[in-house]
Design a binder for these strands. Sequence first.
DNA 1: TATTGTTATACTCTATAACTATA
DNA 2: TATAGTTATAGAGTATAACAATA
Lengths: 135, 135
Amino acid sequence: MSADGEVLDGLVQASFTVMAVLSQAAAAHDLSLTQLRVLAILRDREPKMAELAAHLGLDRSSVSGLIDRGVKRDLVRRTASTDDARAVHVSLTPAGHRLTETLTAEIAEALSPLTKKLTPTDQKRLGTMLARLLD
Amino acid sequence: MSADGEVLDGLVQASFTVMAVLSQAAAAHDLSLTQLRVLAILRDREPKMAELAAHLGLDRSSVSGLIDRGVKRDLVRRTASTDDARAVHVSLTPAGHRLTETLTAEIAEALSPLTKKLTPTDQKRLGTMLARLLD
DNA sequence: TATTGTTATACTCTATAACTATA
DNA sequence: TATAGTTATAGAGTATAACAATA
């Protein structure tokens, strides 16, 4: 395979590995990957439904159901918008916040065996390159 | 955030980005991410159902339905095992092979804007580090 | 008895279309 | 008219449990 192909293949393989870790971490708390993303997004935002749908790349109707299930588990809540009577904001409940913190720690813990395979210098280098990639 | 957190966060963010690209590429051909994985796995293997399920990390019953739908679209086929009358092998049809090649090229094309942000030297470095990560 | 694969069932996730309320 | 959100509906993806056939 070409040198170019090596990076691409590595990126794809690494992504699947990371996603598997994230899915497992989420599943351990009976959450889907999408629900995990919702919690992560709501960690520092209280978007309207349409904004959340845009963040997730999903249809608004899909997010309605998603939030319904989150509300039923007391992880998120809907609040009326003050400036637009049609709009609804979504935010984390205290329980949602706690679970998000727990998950963040568990995911860091589950991923650390991977990054530990690199020297601190290479870890830093990898972080820099990934940041540039995502720019 | 700590230096360690930077790598972890970069890995997670990059993984979501790559997954979004893969999902889009798959969706353009009316395939799910899981179906894309199936095609990729079958590209150079003809596993039994149980082996395929293990590769995907899914229950055998889930894979039954998955393969059902693939068969319906003439992308994969089931063949009897010669050494175990209970077992069934799965393989790509010619149409499945063609679609897999097309997808591979399209995904490489869709991801190249990302890697192009790095110098050839850094691309090589990234490939090396990701390979070590996945070791 | 254990394993392979399928089927029945139930739930989540997702999109499309149709609807209500508000802008 | 256009936008925000929901609901109804349908199909894919997934797991659990039960099953038939074979090992």
